[in-house]
């Protein structure tokens, strides 16, 4: 799996904002960070609010900078932080200052921050390593933030999919119920359709972001019948890599055709044969289902679940309806449609 987020080493560790009213301090800090290729901006009391945003990784403030206005501006920014964020703030205090009191007060004013205190004069290496570890801490926070965001997205997507599947299952159940004449028929038809849906879901899930080969769809649909009827089921065609939607629809259509053949068609008698083949001709794909040597076929009075679903689903998949013929030697179905509607490379 590749991570599409840029790694730690691909981009600068982040942006450092410095509030230091004394020019000596600000130029010292900016030179120190600049030498390490750390991105730094010097701001004053008035411009702090407009510079303080999510691109700010670390805030550095000197003792003199801690005016009521600055404390309030930073407090507001901290309050607006997303849940994953605890902005690191480096504070440079004077040796003579009541540092315990200031530390206590800032801890109260700036909740949800990571405060690092240094007493001036501070050595270059000490300050630098402090800021660098604050930057690292910040980029870890951002990673966690991205992670949380992705999880929220995944959960939303999962919910959407589950609802979709439940809606599909409800439709299958409702439609199976209306076509069933007995509870036993309902039981076997419904569980057969659910099994087909489960199988193809498994194949689509295994494929993950990749397309699904048509050979796999054909194989999984006919696997349950091939053991005893292998020489009577002929399956033939070139490999086509299918979109997940096309794979699902095709699997469910083939399931209907196969079960119909077993119940009423060519596979309900010892000598009957079924042939499913597909070919690509130019921009089109031609799919054909042909039953032969089965019992005499009569067109059903009303269109059942199987034919109804196949017509509806294939029409929507290809943009054109399939041709279904109840010929005396067996059921035939043919559809010709743009291969691009089912193929994904």
């Amino acid at each position: 799996m590749t991570d599409d987020g840029a790694g730690l080493f691909d981009e600068p560790l982040g942006h450092v904002l410095v509030v230091a009213p004394y020019r000596r301090d600000s130029s010292y800090i900016s030179q120190l960070l600049g030498e390490q290729q750390i991105d730094v901006s010097i701001v004053d009391d008035a411009s702090l609010a407009q510079h303080l945003d999510w691109s700010t990784s670390v805030l550095v403030a000197t003792h003199e900078a801690l005016s009521d206005h600055v404390i309030e501006t930073v407090a507001q920014h901290l309050e607006d932080q997303p849940a994953w964020s605890e902005m690191p703030i480096v504070v440079l205090l004077d040796r003579a200052s009541p540092s315990d009191r200031i530390r206590g007060a800032l801890g109260v004013s700036w909740p949800r921050s990571r405060l690092l205190f240094y007493q001036r004069p501070v050595s270059a290496i000490e300050l630098l390593s402090g800021i660098q570890s604050a930057l690292l801490m910040r980029s870890r926070q951002r990673e966690v933030g991205n992670y949380v965001e992705r999880e929220v997205e995944l959960r939303r997507e999962l919910n959407h999919r589950v609802k979709n599947i439940l809606a599909s299952v409800t439709s299958i159940f409702q439609m199976t119920m209306r076509g069933s004449e007995s509870i036993d028929e309902l039981k076997s038809d419904f569980s057969g359709r659910l099994r087909a849906l489960t199988e193809v879901h498994g194949a689509v899930f295994e494929a993950a972001t990749k397309p699904v080969p048509i050979s796999e769809i054909v194989e999984l649909t006919f696997a349950p019948y091939r053991v005893e009827k292998s020489d009577r089921i002929i399956l033939k065609g070139p490999e086509i890599m299918l979109t997940h939607e096309a794979a699902t629809t095709l699997a469910l259509c083939l399931h209907e055709l196969a079960t119909n053949a077993i119940k009423y068609g060519a596979l309900s008698v010892p000598d009957g044969e079924v042939r499913f083949d597909w070919n690509i001709a130019g921009d089109n794909v031609i799919m054909r289902w042909e039953e032969s040597s089965g019992p005499p076929v009569r067109k059903p009075e009303k269109s059942g679940y199987g034919t109804g679903y196949i017509k509806s689903a294939l029409s929507s998949l290809f943009g054109v309806p399939p041709k279904i013929e109840f010929q005396s030697e067996g059921l035939r179905l043919e559809i010709t449609g743009p291969v691009d509607r089912i193929r994904r490379n």
Partner: peptide
């Protein structure tokens, strides 16, 4: 409707 099963159900 992009889900063929649901589309079929709706039509019915």
């Amino acid at each position: 409707e992009d889900n063929p099963l649901i589309a079929f159900h709706l039509e019915q």
